[in-house]
């Protein structure tokens, strides 16, 4: 085990110890405000085996992951080509940038009302809200990634006679990959942030809905459970993206 892992585990144990000390051991923080470890365990067991807010945990997690994946993928498949176009073509940049400058400062959650009016309370509205949140970092970072390519790399490719799709996929995208992935990570983060918010507003399934239901039930242990599962799902998806990045930019660590 590396030194970092040891330190990490030690820190987690210390936090758990402090948690136990403040809640169960001394009672300084009461159960009505924050659950003690035992209550948390019970809540986890309840949602895993019996279910809570109309479904068991895996159904909630799957629903949330599905929405995040959809919103994220749509955002990336629009944002990446758009960023590429803006980075490569000055005229496209001049055309698109003003629109983008207007959309950019709108907080993603401000799209919720419009999304509900357009698409109702179903998945479509939530995907749209996630899209608007995830779209912006994808575009910005792809744009910057293309812009920051060393000019002599592009010149070398042109000298070699590299053109068309081979130029885009063999030169532009790999050269911009580090910044593109920064954008994707930010997009993914934004997707989770907005998902929970979107589900808080109106949903019948999903982690945001669990949080909402637990708040209405004044059930702190279940609130904590919901938060922990959001964190775990977010971390898992970030890890997956990291693996993809590692594969794509293998040369950097070779």
């Amino acid at each position: 085990m590396s030194r970092r892992t040891v330190v990490g585990i030690a820190t987690l144990l210390a936090v758990a110890g402090l948690w136990y000390l403040l809640t169960a051991a001394t009672g300084w923080v009461g159960s009505a405000r924050f659950p003690n470890p035992a209550e948390f365990g019970t809540a986890v067991k309840q949602i895993v085996t019996g279910g809570y807010a109309g479904a068991r945990i895996h159904e909630h997690v799957l629903q949330s992951c599905k929405l995040v994946a959809m919103g994220f993928l749509v955002a990336v498949s629009v944002g990446l080509p758009l960023g590429l176009l803006m980075g490569w073509n000055r005229r496209a940049e001049a055309l698109i940038n003003p629109v983008f400058l207007i959309i950019r400062p709108i907080p993603p959650l401000a799209w919720i009302p419009l999304a509900i009016v357009w698409l109702g309370l179903g998945d479509g509205a939530k995907i749209m809200v996630i899209f608007f949140a995830a779209f912006v970092p994808s575009v910005i970072n792809t744009h910057a990634g293309i812009r920051n390519i060393e000019p002599f790399l592009i010149e070398a490719a042109r000298m070699l006679g590299v053109r068309g799709p081979r130029f885009v996929f063999g030169v532009l995208l790999p050269a911009a990959a580090p910044l593109i992935f920064t954008g994707l990570r930010l997009s993914l983060q934004a997707s989770w942030t907005t998902l929970v918010a979107a589900e808080l507003v109106g949903a019948l399934l999903g982690l945001g809905y669990v949080l909402n239901a637990a708040a209405q039930d004044i059930f702190p242990a279940m609130i904590l459970t919901g938060m922990v599962f959001v964190a775990l799902s977010g971390a898992a998806s970030t890890w997956l993206l990291g693996r993809l990045e590692q594969r794509v930019t293998r040369w950097r660590t070779a």
């Binding site: 060393e150 002599f152 070398a156």
Partner: peptide, 15 residues
């Protein structure tokens, strides 16, 4: 490619 260039900064593709 009929006029191959050897660039001063090499300009190799790092990936």
């Amino acid at each position: 490619p009929d006029r191959a260039v050897v660039f001063q900064q090499f300009a190799l593709f790092p990936w």
